[in-house]
Amino acid sequence: MKNKQAAKSRRSLTKKLLAFLIPACIGLIFLAWIVVPMGMAVLWSLVNPDYPWSYPQMFPSNLSLYHWDHVFRYTDILGAIKNSLIVAAMTTIGCSVLALPTAYAIGRRKLIGGEAFKIAMLLPMAMPGMAMAIFLGRLFAQWGLSNSYTGVAMAHILCTMPLMLRILTVSFESVPQDIVDAASNLGASPWARFKEVYVPMIIPGLIAGCIFTFIGSMEEFNLSFIIGAPAIQTVPTILYSYLGYNFLRTNASVVTLVMMVPNIIVLMVTERFIKTEYLGAALGKM
């Protein structure tokens, strides 16, 4: 009896220990993953140029907002954020308008070759981003679409389309046929069926698709770099110039931190709407 109790208390002790250790481990990994890199960037951005932060010091000896002031005064990072937002909005609208009818056709109509169409959706993913950018860039240059919002947005629509189509197709497929049939039995016109049955049921998928498209456009580099730059600087291309040919750690820190803001705001605002299942369902399965 005593033995049993001892074993029981031992077990509950291990359980308690585990209950403490697992979150602690995850917390540590998380700290190393996000907090430490970002903290370093914050520190670097605050270094006072008169008191350089160099090797033996673990922390900068003097902090100032000099670099923040400098970067905002002499570079157009707010313009880059504006460009990114404009392109992302154009991409999201264009992509959903183009994807909706196609996703409906593949998800609801029993088309011959439906499976093949689902695979064809992935075509843009089968071409390396840089190869697509370089050779699509030549086409766009010929058509006078380079260095314009329209050109960059058109290119972004191309590379965000697969995910949007996949998510919307899954949404359309999961509308139960009974409800559609019930609506037609009750005399609903095609338009009423669309408005009252399909729209409410695909809205969550559409929102998720729009969020992934928006984010995808915000962080797309290759196409923006070849087709948009130098006239249309977006967040990733201006970052690239700060990390490449004019690398200054302090200024790059400021730019990096500022550039994270729009995406993190989008993440925070939309977190409730993004069911991770959508990405899992759209990419993990066929």
């Binding site: 308008v97 183009l98 994807a99 009818p101 196609t102 996703a103 056709a105 593949i106 088309l111 169409f117 064809a120 959706m121 075509l123 843009p124 629509i157 191309l158 389309m161 697969p162 189509l165």
Partner: peptide
């Protein structure tokens, strides 16, 4: 299919 797949 045209708007989506045609574009791609």
């Amino acid at each position: 299919l045209l708007p989506g797949l045609g574009y791609i």
